[in-house]
């Protein structure tokens, strides 16, 4: 089971006119893996991710997500993935419960299932007292945890997290990563972009994108060995400098 690939990309490319945002990237991600997708701003992370989640068509190359083709089977991909964007993306003017009901609803969960899930979520996150409050009144950390839980509502096979911990304090970040581990233990594959290099250390494997290309891809341990440095931060700096 552990060897099953849930994401496969081969020479995946995206061009906007003359500009190549993503240049022939290839990788495979296994079930239950936490895959860190690293890169500086503008390196092409978000564009690559958008192709994988089916909202942007690749210019060339191939990719399968959850066994479905990114050109022709985006509808199936969408049913099998969860997504949390870097902007906090629940509705501020809806209560915690209404948000859960809404997002459960658009993924086609039955009313009974939504009720169960709401109950489970509320007790897991300790939201009992505030479930009828508007989400807008919650602290950012809670919103983000809630947002992550909502992206897992329909029990997707893969969840894509686009810089999920931006602007959050270290303690909340820690808790957030605990939630990620829990989800990965249940067999959900995690595809996470980040530019916090300490978070890269938490991932099973990381890829580092520089100017549209994947310049390094391995476990954090191997990468540090390969570049003969102590931290992922230094790995990243080395790579960036080589390019210059």
């Amino acid at each position: 089971m552990k060897t099953e690939n849930v994401i496969e990309a081969k020479a995946l490319t995206k061009k906007f006119g003359d500009f190549t945002a993503v240049n022939k990237i290839s990788f495979e991600i296994k079930k239950g893996e936490i895959f860190g997708f690293l890169g500086a701003n503008g390196a092409g992370k978000t564009t690559a991710m958008k192709m994988l989640i089916g909202i942007s068509k690749p210019t060339s190359g191939q990719a399968n997500v959850a066994g479905f083709d990114v050109y022709t089977q985006t509808e199936n991909i969408k049913k099998n993935i969860g997504y949390m964007s870097q902007k906090f993306a629940l509705y501020d003017d809806l209560t915690v419960r209404e948000n859960i009901t809404f997002f459960g609803g658009i993924y086609g969960l039955s009313r009974k299932r939504i009720k169960e899930k709401t109950q489970q979520l509320v007790s897991e996150l300790g939201l009992e007292e505030i479930k009828h409050q508007l989400v807008g009144s919650l602290p950012l950390g809670w919103k983000q945890k809630l947002s992550f839980s909502v992206s897992l509502l329909h029990e997707p096979r893969i969840v894509f997290l686009d810089e999920p911990t931006g602007g959050v304090d270290p303690i909340t970040r820690r808790q957030f990563w605990e939630m990620i581990y829990k989800a990965a233990d249940r067999g959900t594959t995690i595809f996470v972009t980040t530019h916090y290099m300490d978070e890269a250390e938490y991932c099973d494997r990381v890829s580092i994108m520089v100017e549209g290309k994947i310049e390094a891809l391995d476990t954090p341990k191997e990468l540090k060995k390969q570049f003969k440095v102590d931290s992922m931060n230094d790995v990243f700096l080395r790579l960036a400098r080589n390019i210059e």
Partner: peptide, 14 residues
């Protein structure tokens, strides 16, 4: 603006 549109487009809703 809020980024929820992206979430909706990634969902199975057409």
């Amino acid at each position: 603006e809020l980024g929820t549109m992206e979430i909706l487009l990634v969902s199975p809703l057409k």
